[in-house]
Nucleic acid binder design. Structure first.
Lengths: 208, 208
DNA sequence: AATCCCAGAGAACAGTTGTTAACTGCATGG
DNA sequence: CCATGCAGTTAACAACTGTTCTCTGGGATT
């Protein structure tokens, strides 16, 4: 099997991507559980039945969207947590990176925030699995740092989860400021930075 | 105007409550944005048109549900944060209280977690407003404590927000264990406790 | 060059949706 | 005791939904 696609499969993937894009846009003002199959095909400009050539259901489409929205983030996570500099510099850099990501992919961030606790079980599970992977990756990076000496495995995972959740909370806060002015975004960044700082201080004094 | 209701208004409130109860149950496996008006009236056992006597739309019903789910929690918040005992005792008590609340009102907790970032703007705003109130109340209680000496107003609010978000995260984690066994719930409680502990340590060393 | 495959089109289905209008019957206030 | 108000009913509407079956056209395979 080759990674070179014939014009046949290439066209199929193109249509599939059109479905994902259209769905993501429609989902900015509704939830996945109310997204209709016909609604999506109408937005793409194909017949309703074409949908079944790509997905079993809208829930299936949702799971594919989870991969698209979170699958590409893993590399970023690692490099951010393991970045050079002291604690304060890493925090500033992380908050800035979240802000940029929200500006670059607002629909992705909105989708994850909305469907993490949404009404479609397979999608919730897919998001949960990805977030668990994130936590494991963050934990692995934290373990490499000298500040983690003497830490137990479960405490490291606890801290990693705290960071991951904080990342999501910060992301959705930035999301709410997207239609506002720059000053608002600055305020969110400052609060998020202080939250991370407090967590880092807690980490530093965790033992003993 | 009297607070004693005639049988007329009493029956109306009864029906209204039936709408809220039915909707809350239907919302356990879907989102508000996919909740149909007819679906609700069918569950209650009344004609579709009866709905309009109580709500303009399902979004309106959602806002009413926010009041029901969060309105009664304010008293609890205050007494919990300002409870006697040292930091560790207060954390244990808070986590236990969250666990009990989730067991007592799982549908309420699920609704808030789901619709906080859900697809219905008025509901998102209603939840956001209530959570802001919570944060203000927690801040007021924190300000009374001796540990908060020297703290700025915005730092107190930052910490309060951190606690409120942590409360929600913990709640939704407990929610996922409701169909599981006791051991699972115990594990969630332990992780949540350690998270709160780390935040408390960060708080203690925040200044200087 | 002849064949097969399959993404997408088209039409039709039974069932559902929100909203309207005009109604009925009963508790309420004068 | 009678007139009014109003919660809930009934019937009907156009529009929409997911899913099935049949068909078509052109890239892929031999």
């Amino acid at each position: 099997m080759s990674h070179i696609l014939g014009s046949r499969q290439a066209q199929k993937q193109k249509t599939r991507q059109a479905f994902l894009d259209a769905a993501l846009e429609l989902l900015e003002e509704q939830s996945l559980s109310s997204l209709g199959l016909r609604e999506v095909t109408r937005a793409v400009g194909v017949a309703p039945t074409a949908f079944y050539r790509h997905f079993h259901s809208t829930a299936d489409l949702g799971v594919a969207l989870v991969e698209e929205a979170l699958g590409s983030l893993h590399a970023m996570i690692g490099t951010t947590v393991s970045a050079a500099g002291d604690s304060e510099q890493r925090i500033t850099r992380a908050v800035d990176l979240i802000a940029r990501h929200v500006e670059a992919y607002p629909a992705h961030v909105r989708f994850i925030a909305r469907e993490r606790h949404g009404g479609v079980q397979p999608v919730r599970e897919a998001i949960g699995a990805q977030l668990a992977r994130f936590a494991e990756e963050v934990k692995a990076e934290l373990a490499k740092q000298p500040e983690s000496e003497g830490w137990g495995d479960d405490d490291l995972l606890m801290l990693a989860g705290l960071y991951v959740d904080q990342m999501l909370v910060t992301g959705s806060l930035f999301l709410e400021t997207l239609e506002g002015d720059e000053e608002e975004r600055e305020r969110v960044a400052r609060v998020a930075t202080r939250r991370m700082r407090l967590i880092s201080i807690g980490r530093r004094h965790w033992l003993g």
